[in-house]
Write a protein that binds this DNA or RNA. Structure first.
Length: 254
DNA sequence: AATCGAGACAACCGCGGGGAG
DNA sequence: TCTCCCCGCGGTTGTCTCGAT
C-alpha cells in the first residue's frame, strides 16, 4: 500500500494555524462542505495537507464544539466511560456532545488520570490537587466548575469560537464581561461611535497584515489604551487586540 | 531579572478499517 | 478478490505559559 507523501515533502505548511488559514477553512467548508479532505486544501487555497485541515476542523473550528469548563458531570462521565471502554477516545467523545476526542484525551492525560491515581504522581497530590478538590466543593454549590483547562485557555492562541469566528461587538461584550473585569473594555465596546468590529473587520485586518492601512483600528486601540491608562503604542499587536476584542482576553495590569 | 521545569493543549504521525473500482 | 485511496483513531510530540527557584 502506497502512502501519500507527508506534508513536508510536498512543501506544505505545518504547525500552528493562523487566523487567515482558519477563516479560509471555515469559509470554504461553510460554502462547500468537506466531501473530500484530501482535495479540500487545494480547492480552498490552503498550503496544508487534508489531514491537517480535517484535524483543525474537527478538533477546533467545528461550530458545535464546546470548549473549556468541563463540568463535574462531564468529568464523571469520562471517568466512567474510560473505566468501561479504555482509551477509546472517539467513543467517549461521542457520549459527550461538543467535546472532541483530542480534548478528552488531553484532559485525561493531564488531569483526570492523576486525580484518579494520585499515588502515581506525588506532585498532584500536593497543593494543586488539593486546590482542585476545594474548587470542586465550592462548585457543588455554585454549579459549573472552572476546569484547569480554562485557566490557561485565555492565554493560548486559540480561536475556536470562530463560528461565529469573530463575534460582533454585541456578542463580544457578553464574552468580555463574563470573563474579565475590564471596565474600560466594556465602555469601549458599548461606544456607539466605534465601527463594528465584526468578522469582516478582523478578516480585513489580518489579510492586509499591516494595521497601518486601517486607521480605524489604530484609533480604536488608541482610545482603549488611553482609557485604560496605557502609554501610546504600548500594544501595537493585532493578535493581542484580536484576543482582547473577540475572546475577552484580560488586559495587562498597569 | 533570569532560568528552569512542569503543566496544558494544539498539532502531527503512523496505523488500520472500510469503501470503491 | 485485490488494490488503491480516504478517513478516523490513538499515541506522541511540540510549543507556549506560568510558577518556583
Amino acid at each position: 500500500m502506497v502512502r501519500a507523501p507527508c506534508c513536508e515533502k510536498m512543501g506544505l505548511k505545518k504547525g500552528p494555524w493562523t487566523h487567515q488559514e482558519d477563516r479560509i477553512l471555515i469559509d470554504y467548508i461553510n460554502l462547500h462542505g468537506h466531501p473530500n479532505w484530501r482535495a479540500l486544501p487545494k480547492l480552498a487555497g490552503l498550503l496544508r495537507c487534508g489531514k491537517s485541515c480535517r484535524l483543525r476542523w474537527t478538533n477546533y473550528l467545528r461550530p458545535d464544539i464546546k470548549r473549556g469548563n468541563f463540568s463535574r458531570e462531564e468529568e464523571e462521565t469520562i471517568i466512567q466511560l474510560h473505566t468501561a471502554m479504555g482509551n477509546r477516545w472517539s467513543a467517549i467523545a461521542a457520549r459527550l456532545p461538543g467535546r472532541t476526542d483530542n480534548e478528552i484525551k488531553n484532559v485525561w492525560h493531564t488531569y483526570l488520570k492523576k486525580r484518579l491515581n494520585p499515588n502515581t504522581n506525588p506532585t498532584v497530590t500536593s497543593s494543586k490537587f488539593q486546590q482542585e478538590v476545594e474548587i470542586s466543593k465550592e462548585d457543588e454549590e455554585d454549579g459549573a466548575r472552572s476546569s484547569p483547562l480554562e485557566t490557561n485557555s485565555s492565554s493560548q492562541t486559540s480561536y475556536n469560537q470562530i463560528d461565529s469566528p469573530q463575534p460582533s461587538s454585541t456578542e463580544i461584550s457578553s464574552v468580555t464581561t463574563s470573563t474579565n473585569d475590564n471596565s474600560c473594555m466594556e465602555d469601549m465596546l458599548l461606544d456607539q461611535s466605534l465601527p463594528d468590529m465584526d468578522e469582516e473587520f478582523w478578516s480585513e485586518i489580518f489579510s492586509a497584515g499591516n494595521s497601518d492601512e486601517f486607521p480605524a483600528v489604530h484609533e480604536n486601540i488608541g482610545q482603549l489604551q488611553s482609557r485604560c491608562g496605557f502609554e501610546s503604542n504600548l500594544h501595537d499587536d493585532m493578535d493581542f487586540w484580536y484576543n482582547v476584542f473577540t475572546r475577552g482576553e484580560e488586559l495587562p495590569q498597569i
